[in-house]
């Protein structure tokens, strides 16, 4: 039994079958990549996992509980964190404040009316945020406005904001999309470091084969809304069906 079990999920947008009978099982402590050509339904699947979309049929079980019908913040409180394609951070707040918010969310839940005490009297929360910033080597930037960070640092910050919540599952939506070669290498290194140090279960949606093969333990290939194959990276590389659906399309 995996930590995330997707079974028989269908999603239709008008006449388009975006997801057709998707079954997927993500094992704890693994890095599971979901790849596929454009329009294969990768993002739709991801959105079904985090509560942004509700599948027409099928079930999505996380840690023994169904996530269907729950709102994004409720699913996050269950232990799923999400990193976006373009980093979603609080641009008007400082780096430290960006880090404090997930720590508060972790401690206090979806809403708490703590309007009188000062943020800076919450020393344990601040300490945890600072530790995490040190771990991603951003300690020198705590007072900076998050919107003024470089793209790579925004990505690091977003990742750190997710990790400080100690998620049971970290979802990454094309974490290296639009990045330069060097930034991509840095991100791979960061993700590998995170996995080795914290043993976080990750599901990655990715286009870049280089990223996928250097990170994933298992790969699911999605084509036209249906999983084609699921296997280890080595087996996927030479798989004829994958060539046909994915690499074949890439050569056109």
């Amino acid at each position: 039994m995996g930590i995330l079990e997707v079974s028989g999920v269908n999603k239709r947008f008008g006449g388009l079958q975006a997801l057709g009978d998707v079954n997927l099982s993500i094992q704890e402590q693994s890095v599971h990549a979901i790849i596929g050509p454009n329009g294969a339904g990768k993002s739709t699947l991801l959105n079904c996992l985090v509560g942004k979309l509700i599948p027409d049929s099928g079930s999505v079980m996380f840690d023994g509980q169904s996530v269907l019908g729950r709102k994004p913040h409720e699913i996050n409180q269950m232990g799923i964190s999400r990193v976006f394609q373009t980093p979603e951070i609080f641009g008007d707040l400082t780096v430290l404040e960006n880090m404090l918010i997930p720590v508060f969310a972790n401690r206090d839940g979806a809403f708490r009316m703590h309007a009188i005490e000062s943020v800076f009297s919450e020393s344990s929360v601040i300490e945890r945020a600072r530790e995490m910033l040190a771990e991603v080597r951003m300690s020198d930037k705590v007072e900076m406005l998050a919107s003024s960070l470089s793209r790579g640092d925004k990505r690091r910050l977003e990742m750190a904001m997710c990790l400080v919540q100690k998620p049971k599952l970290l979802l990454l939506d094309e974490p290296t999309a639009g990045m330069a070669r060097a930034d991509t290498e840095n991100t791979i290194a960061l993700l590998n470091e995170i996995r080795n140090r914290r043993g976080v279960t990750m599901a990655i949606i990715e286009h870049d084969m280089n990223v996928v093969f250097s990170l994933a333990d298992r790969i699911t290939v999605l084509a036209q809304g249906t999983p084609l194959v699921e296997d280890t990276p080595d087996n996927i590389k030479g798989h004829p069906k994958v060539r046909e659906a994915y690499l074949g399309e890439a050569q056109v």
């Binding site: 985090v50 709102k71 994004p72 913040h73 409720e74 996050n76 409180q77 964190s81 999400r82 976006f84 979603e88 951070i89 609080f90 641009g91 008007d92 707040l93 918010i101 997930p102 969310a105 972790n106 839940g109 979806a110 809403f111 904001m161 919540q165």
Partner: peptide, 12 residues
């Protein structure tokens, strides 16, 4: 600043 991030940080 960012309601999307707030939602995905477990805050309503």
């Amino acid at each position: 600043s960012n309601q999307q991030r707030m939602n995905y940080t477990g805050l309503s």
